[in-house]
Design a protein around this nucleic acid. Structure first.
Length: 209
DNA sequence: ATCCCGAGGG
DNA sequence: CCCTCTGGAT
């Protein structure tokens, strides 16, 4: 894989998806962290239907830390996995209050030590809420596309991320992640990719995954 | 029926 | 490493 081809892919993606942000509604690192935790196995549009009332009721980590679990579960039920997510949100908020004075920490280590926060969520918050290009978001879509596009031959998300970080300049990491995710959702599906409508054709090697 | 923008736990 | 957790969209 050459840097030139990587650059060409980036250019085509940028043209196809000019809006290089996530589709979650948020106004602070706290709100993005909560929305991202809710987004597992769920569309951003659905998350956006529950977050207004959620943030009105629990506007900051301190309020969320004191939330009643049953009330929290009721508010987020439609996003699926609601018991796990309620537990994660509660644990996350308590940890933020106890360990970080109620402020969402802006470092990979501190974020990942919060309950319910894995590498994907931490990367989203760092890149999109704090504007800290520390890595590339690698979720199932990005992993699949990186392999299909020949950007990485790895399986492990961490290794895929390293490959992407070598291939693309740091300033592109955050928008690249959003664009790959969007492309994966809209066009390059896991089962039946819509190659006819793909802005990356005919350059795509279509590596089978 | 089948799939989905993850993370924790055994 | 594999399993589990959930509702909603298609």
């Amino acid at each position: 894989m050459s840097a030139a081809r990587a650059a060409a892919i980036e250019t085509a993606l940028a043209a196809a998806y000019p809006d290089a942000t996530c589709e979650l509604d948020f106004r602070s690192p706290y709100e993005l962290l909560v929305a991202t935790i809710l987004s597992a196995q769920c569309t951003d549009a659905r998350v956006n239907t529950v977050t207004p009332s959620l943030f009105e009721r629990f506007p900051d980590p301190r309020a969320l830390a004191r939330a009643d679990q049953a009330e929290l579960e009721a508010l987020i039920r439609s996003t699926g996995f609601f018991r796990n997510k309620a537990k994660s949100l509660l644990g996350m908020a308590c940890a933020v209050v106890e360990r970080h004075g109620g402020e969402i920490p802006a470092s990979m280590g501190n974020l990942r030590n919060l309950p319910g926060v894995g590498r994907k969520t931490a990367n989203v918050v760092l890149g999109t809420a704090f504007g800290m290009s520390t890595g590339v978001v690698v979720d199932t879509h990005v992993a699949r596309l990186a392999r299909r596009l020949g950007l990485s031959a790895e399986e492990d998300p961490e290794k895929i991320e390293r490959d992407l970080m070598e291939l693309f300049p740091p300033a592109t990491w955050v928008p690249l992640g959003h664009r790959l995710i969007r492309h994966g959702r809209r066009v390059c599906h896991a089962r039946k990719p819509e190659c006819d409508a793909c802005p990356l054709m005919p350059t795509c090697p279509r590596i089978d995954v």
